[in-house]
Design a binder for these strands. Structure first.
Lengths: 215, 215
DNA sequence: AATTTAAATCTTGTATACAATAATATTGAC
DNA sequence: GTCAATATTATTGTATACAAGATTTAAATT
């Protein structure tokens, strides 16, 4: 592993935890990681602290830090919370989005449409992310926006999976269309409700997939 | 200043920043803090990182960390977000709270009532906090609960102020009563709307007070 | 005198050394 | 042979030493 500084190490470790490189409960050995990254324990410890702060690991004093992969229950809770955050963004966005913002949203959605036509799930995943981020931005509340971005990023690896469902992309796109209409109409309640449902479905699909894998 | 370990130092620093001990933009000098706490720079740096992570300070690489007191705009944004988080908690709580939870909520509210009768603002502040936390808990979503607790804690020093408004405590209590009724009735939409309003008023009162102080 | 350049100083970031505590192994008693 | 007590080892947490970059001060040149 190449030499990096603390911040980059934290990012890399996040990626590794996201990718399931470490399993739940595994202790992150400071010394081994220091050797792997060819640095001393100091920047490793800083990176580990960041992992702990972002909820991806747990620290037990004098024992070490242990990766904490969210279980099915916590994931469902996180999806539920994401749905509520997005609903909140939509509520504000409906009342506050500028014409430019609505244009950007329409553009983002048309790129989603392109991805569906190309049946490019990887691209849809990215464009969909951008679409939602445009709504966060539209809330005109940078704190809420950053919180939404944070959780979106945290759920990233789990959202990816649910697009595998047959017809999910097309359905998702149809929901997008409704959401855009509500936002254009300035319908706060409608936008909030639609976004809540849109994201909740993601969580449910994910749960279905997880349950399916267990059988 | 007494000797403490990193975690305690972080807590103490948070308190100090909360109390406005350091003004916005002030650099937190590692060496000076190390001397003040009678420890080396290492635990100080850990504590500073935690401050940065919790958004109470900003880190500029190779320059240092600087306290970041939220301005009026950001505070309004945070109150708005709090309102939405509480609304979300209420939405779930209305559908999920157990009888025991409802009992605890009623108890918490009656303690709020006691505080109002005693005209004890400090106590009302505490009991009110407990009342809201009971609703977070009632959401039966520990992730959402922890997020709500996090923001509630972050807004703590600013909520305190708005209780100074004449009649605010009594009005707040009346709103509580409505909220309890909606939760008991299982009225998700009602509970969400009431809580949103209840918290939004707090933010608005705070804004009024800030505007008043400027004149 | 003002501006630019270079030197010195200060500060952060990293590495290493040490201290304290937890985990493990070893020895002894029953 | 098993359990307990103690010694050993390993690991985290803190202190100190060093390296690299940023800021300030001083000097030199125009």
């Amino acid at each position: 592993m190449e030499i990096k500084r603390a911040e980059q190490i934290a990012e890399t470790l996040e990626q590794l935890v996201f990718q399931g490189e470490y399993e739940d409960g595994q202790r992150l050995d400071e010394i081994k990681l220091a050797e792997q990254f060819s640095v001393s324990r100091t920047p490793i410890r800083e990176a580990l602290q960041r992992l702990v702060m972002s909820g991806m690991a747990e620290q037990i004093p004098r024992r070490g830090v242990f990766v904490r992969q969210p279980g099915p229950v916590e994931l469902l809770e996180m999806f539920e919370t994401m749905a509520e955050l997005e609903a909140a963004c939509g509520r504000f966005a409906a009342a506050r989005m500028t014409d430019e913002g609505l244009d950007r949203l329409a553009d983002a959605n048309s790129r989603c449409m392109d991805a569906v036509e190309e049946e490019d799930a990887a691209r849809y995943y990215l464009e969909n992310e951008a679409f939602h981020q445009e709504i966060y931005r539209g809330s005109t509340n940078s704190y809420l926006q950053s919180e939404a971005l944070r959780l979106q990023n945290r759920l990233k690896p789990y959202r990816r999976v649910q697009l595998r469902f047959r017809g999910r992309m097309a359905q998702s796109l149809a929901e997008h269309e409704e959401i855009v209409q509500a936002l254009k109409a300035g319908d706060s309640e409608g936008a909030a409700k639609l976004l809540r449902g849109h994201v909740t479905v993601q969580g449910e699909k994910f749960q279905q997939l997880m349950a399916g894998l267990k059988n």
